[in-house]
Write a protein that binds this DNA or RNA. Structure first.
Ligand SMILES: [Zn+2]
Ligand SMILES: [Zn+2]
Length: 800
DNA sequence: AGCACGCCGACT
DNA sequence: GTCGGCGTGCTC
């Protein structure tokens, strides 16, 4: 076929058609990565379709086929297309999100000196030629050092004094390891003729080679020998040294695998129910309380699929959780288990991708949401654990997809089953159960006689009025903590706010320092002694800060974050070691694991943290979990605040479940009669669901209604407001009262961009796809309006 | 997304 | 008069 339609990794709605040179026509295939020119740049694009038809416009030619083997399958292309249309973004944006960065092709332009006898015309020419004497230079670097005087370079090009060579490179670099092999049929006589050291080294190598491939570097290190005897042995042809490409794996696999643990009677029964539900539903929700042993059930289901030769994908909401689970499952699945997420090195991600394409054996992949883009070809099961977690939804760069929902579509394409797991299901999933779309299996019995924690609500009002609070600690909490700690048990303190305080205030004039780039107050971080913006990376020294209004140097802190809780804890419990786990303490590569293992082995007695503590962590000596201020969650300005509070509080409480002894959960609040807190105390999911669904229905919120948000942003406040108004009116003409806004969001400016938003709430009985299409058309009308072309307009479908 | 082109204000 | 800002439009 002489023409190819190609998607490029750019945020552009349309794809491009290129001519396929005759020499490539035999080998070109859908899914291959090819190098193509666009404007004056080069990109690596994916072949979507081949065609006989000559387009009406002139075409450029494909420059090269990067890999003969396609890097994506036609099923993946179908998945990408669905995502672009469902989440209202460009196919190129999906491509960027889907492909590991290591596949990306980057072009560099090198300037070479071709004439050595040229006499420069000007000072600039002389400078360029001097610079090129020592070898070719990158065009960009040369351009930067010239300060935009490209004219001179162009003149030199025309005079053929210099030439530009364009080279395309891929970021992925295979890892190469030197392996040592003993030559075959070495006789004892030959060995006896060698020096003592050489014969020792050789015998050791022969021995080791019987069971494994021996890498040179590892051999040198483990045997404590130097290179010289090996060099001699290679020269004497006793050892063959060979460089080979290998897969990297930073994940430490266990030496041996074990058979699966047997399921308990109840687990066995639930396993059967899930299987049964799969006969009639492709998606099943497993509503199982904390410590009910959901993971064991997953493990058996995974093993079953692998036995059948089918692949399994296990999705988790947080990268930090993948390692924990992988360690647990690798005991059973060994090297059939792979880990994949965006914090993995680009090289390793490419290798996981290639391993799946090799199709040599079925794998179970544990990953965060980006793992849905892997080249699966025979997926049997997708497990989405902690399915209620909002972090499954991608936030900023498009595609703003929901990992769980995208996984369900992927399963549909692959003819696979999906198992959603949660102790506190999302209203979305439970709603789908009610509609009969998903199957439901309930597991309310605790595993191995673990007792459910006792949940106690504490009214902070009284202690506060009587001035008996010590910071955020009520006397009841302090008493309970003392008892627990004296018992040799551990304590978890939960406060969903990082930093030292919410903000600071000038003691003299009450002015609150704000971020110069965003419309938010700065948060105090006492440990780093800085005032930070949580929306951009603005950070200033707290010690040196003077009030912008009155130059005052003294500030008081307002609101209490995890850092201050840690300070108060140390003051109240000086004899017990405490630690903190939040966004600020987990930026390092293994910091998260380190903090957790210190707590697990009992080194730390008190662990303070944000919602990071809520997700799937198991501790066995936690006697007390305390939520310092539940009101902070309940008053969060979001329609999901009550649902989220319920989930978070129950998840955090779940950390207090232990064998034999009942754990305790204290919830401090100024509103002990709050209906949600009452339901948390009783762990009553269904009443919460019913009550919330009524509310969502009354106010036209998901899951009863579809909802999407159109976000507008621009550097100019007036401009973005005008555009948003125009779009709002346009949408009102189409959707009437289903349109809400345009309005200014709570945080009206981020990174110097002014923001506006419009919400659309659509009835489930109407076509969501049609609504999106009409919205897209309205957006393009606004973009075509004079003066508004530079306004960024993006859609967030199924907002979180 | 990048990149060039072109139109307007403000400085050597 | 030119430099550089940004708004606009185009890329197969
Ligand atoms: Zn002041
Ligand atoms: Zn900021």
């Amino acid at each position: 076929m002489p023409y190819a339609i190609i998607v490029l990794p750019i945020a552009q709605q349309s794809c491009y058609t290129y001519e396929v040179p005759v020499s490539f026509q035999k080998e070109i295939q859908i899914g291959q990565q090819v190098v193509v020119p666009l404007g004056r740049k080069f990109y690596g694009g994916i072949v979507l379709k081949l065609s006989e038809d000559k387009p009406s416009y002139p075409t450029k030619s494909i420059i090269s086929i990067w890999d003969k083997k396609p890097i994506v399958s036609s099923e993946q292309i179908a998945f990408w297309k669905w995502m672009a249309s469902y989440y209202m973004c460009a196919l190129g944006e999906v491509m960027t999100a889907a492909l590991p960065a290591g596949f990306r092709i980057e072009s560099e332009h090198k300037v070479h000196l071709t004439k050595t006898d040229y006499i420069p015309d000007s000072e600039t020419e002389r400078l360029i030629i001097d610079a090129l004497q020592h070898g070719a230079l990158d065009l960009k670097t040369l351009d930067e050092s010239l300060g935009g005087k490209l004219e001179v370079l162009k003149a030199l090009l025309e005079k053929e004094v210099v030439q530009i060579h364009t080279q395309h490179n891929q970021r992925f670099k295979p890892k190469e390891v030197v392996f040592l092999y003993p030559r075959e049929n070495i006789t004892t006589e030959e060995i006896n003729k060698l020096s003592e050291l050489q014969s020792h080294v050789l015998l050791r190598l022969i021995d080791l080679s019987k069971t494994e491939k021996v890498s040179k570097s590892k051999f040198l290190e483990e045997e404590g020998v130097t290179e010289s005897p090996i060099k001699t042995l290679i020269k004497k042809e006793f050892i063959i040294s060979q460089k080979e490409k290998v897969y990297r794996h930073s994940f430490k696999y266990p030496k041996e695998t074990k058979p699966l643990y047997e399921l308990s009677e109840i687990q066995q029964q639930k396993y059967g129910e899930i299987k049964k539900q799969f006969e009639t539903h492709s998606t099943v929700l497993l509503h199982g309380i904390t410590s009910s042993g959901k993971t064991e059930i997953y493990t058996h289901l995974i093993a079953k699929e692998l036995e059948k030769g089918r692949f399994v994908l296990f999705l988790l909401p947080e990268i930090a959780l993948t390692t924990q689970l992988a360690e647990r499952l690798a005991i059973f699945f060994g090297k059939q288990l792979l880990v994949y997420h965006s914090k993995y090195s680009t090289n390793e991600r490419v290798e996981v991708w290639r391993k799946l394409q090799a199709k040599d054996k079925p794998y179970v992949v544990i990953g965060a949401r980006s793992a849905i883009f892997l080249p699966f070809h025979d997926l049997g099961l997708i497990v989405v654990d902690e399915e209620h977690e909002p972090s499954f939804k991608q936030q900023d760069p498009a595609p703003r997809y929901h990992g769980r929902d995208a996984a369900i579509y992927l399963a549909y394409l692959q003819n696979s089953k999906v198992l959603l797991g949660s102790a506190t299901p999302s209203l979305e999933s439970y709603f789908n159960v009610q509609l009969g779309k998903y199957g439901l299996v309930e597991l309310f019995q605790r595993y191995q006689d673990i007792l459910p924690p006792e949940i106690i609500l504490i009214d902070s009002t009284e202690a506060s009025r009587k001035k008996r609070m010590k910071g955020l600690f009520t006397p009841e909490l302090i008493k309970a903590m003392n008892e627990t700690l004296e018992n040799g048990e551990q304590v978890i303190l939960f406060q969903n706010r990082r930093g030292y305080s919410y903000f600071v205030k000038c003691e003299n004039c009450d002015t609150i320092p704000h971020c110069p780039n965003c419309d938010v107050s700065l948060s105090l971080h006492k440990y780093a002694n800085t005032l930070d913006c949580h929306y951009c990376n603005y950070s200033i020294s707290y010690a040196k800060h003077k009030c912008g209004e009155c130059q005052g140097e003294d500030f008081s802190t307002i609101g209490i974050g995890t850092e201050q809780i840690e300070e108060q804890t140390t003051a109240l419990f000086p004899n017990y070691l405490s630690d903190r786990i939040d966004w600020d303490t987990t930026t390092g590569k293994h910091s998260y694991e380190k903090i957790l293992s210190k707590f697990k082995n009992g080194e730390t007695k008190i662990l303070i943290g944000t919602q990071m503590l809520a997700k799937g962590l198991d501790f066995d000596n936690v006697g007390l979990v305390a939520i310092l201020n539940a009101d902070l969650l309940l008053h969060y300005p979001d329609f999901r605040a009550y649902e989220r509070s319920f989930q978070l509080l129950l998840q955090v409480s779940g950390r207090a479940g232990r064998k034999k002894k009942q754990g305790k959960v204290l919830i401090q609040t100024y509103k002990p009669k709050h209906p949600v807190l009452k339901l948390v105390k009783e762990s009553a999911y269904t009443p919460l669901y019913n009550q919330q669904i009524r509310e969502r229905n009354a106010f036209h919120y998901p899951p009863v209604y579809y909802m999407m948000k159109i976000k507008l942003k621009h550097k100019n406040k007036q401009k973005v407001e005008e555009a948003a108004y125009l779009l709002g009116e346009d949408l009102k003409n189409i959707f009437g009262a289903r349109t809400y806004g345009a309005h200014t969001p709570l945080v009206s400016r981020v990174k110097n961009f002014y923001l506006q938003e419009i919400i659309l709430k659509i009835e489930r009985k109407s076509s969501y796809a049609k609504a999106k299409q009409l919205t897209s058309e309205a957006i393009s009308r606004v973009k075509q309006t004079k003066g508004f072309s530079s306004i960024h307009i993006g859609a967030d479908v199924d907002v979180f």
